[in-house]
């Protein structure tokens, strides 16, 4: 089981990504698709954090003296995730408001029925 312990975080992250994609592909309900995006995004954040992980590392904050810089995890992925989360929130907010509007216009959230724009 060396393999699993080696790659647990990656596997978890990618499982989330794949599950999210599966939901986006298969589910009909717009809200569920949005939830799928949430899961997909979460998987990506987890993956980014995992990339920067250092075994037995500490947070990259010199909150008290005497912390070993060599033991700190990579701060860059954390910064990226911070940015990515904000972007994710923005997209999510827009998606939700559009879903509300879709419901107001079509009376349904079923994506298979919202097909006025085609061909």
């Amino acid at each position: 089981m060396n393999f699993l312990s080696e790659y647990t975080y990656y596997i978890g992250a990618f499982s989330l990504i794949i599950i999210g994609l599966y939901i986006i592909l298969v589910k009909k309900n717009l809200m569920k698709v949005i939830i799928g995006f949430s899961i997909f995004d979460t998987g990506i954040y987890l993956f980014l954090i995992a990339v920067g992980y250092l075994r037995e590392g500490t947070a990259p904050v010199f909150s008290k003296p005497g912390l070993d810089a060599g033991k700190m995890v990579d701060p860059v992925p954390q910064a990226l995730v911070l940015t990515a989360i904000v972007i994710g929130v923005a997209v999510l907010a827009l998606a939700v408001i559009l879903a509300i509007k879709i419901y107001a216009h079509y009376g349904t959230l079923n994506l298979r029925k919202i097909k006025e724009q085609r061909w």
């Binding site: 080696e6 975080y9 590392g57 990259p60 990579d74 860059v76």
Partner: peptide, 13 residues
Amino acid sequence: FGEPGERIGDHFI
């Protein structure tokens, strides 16, 4: 996974 590598993050730390 979890191994230190040559990264720009080291410089920041």
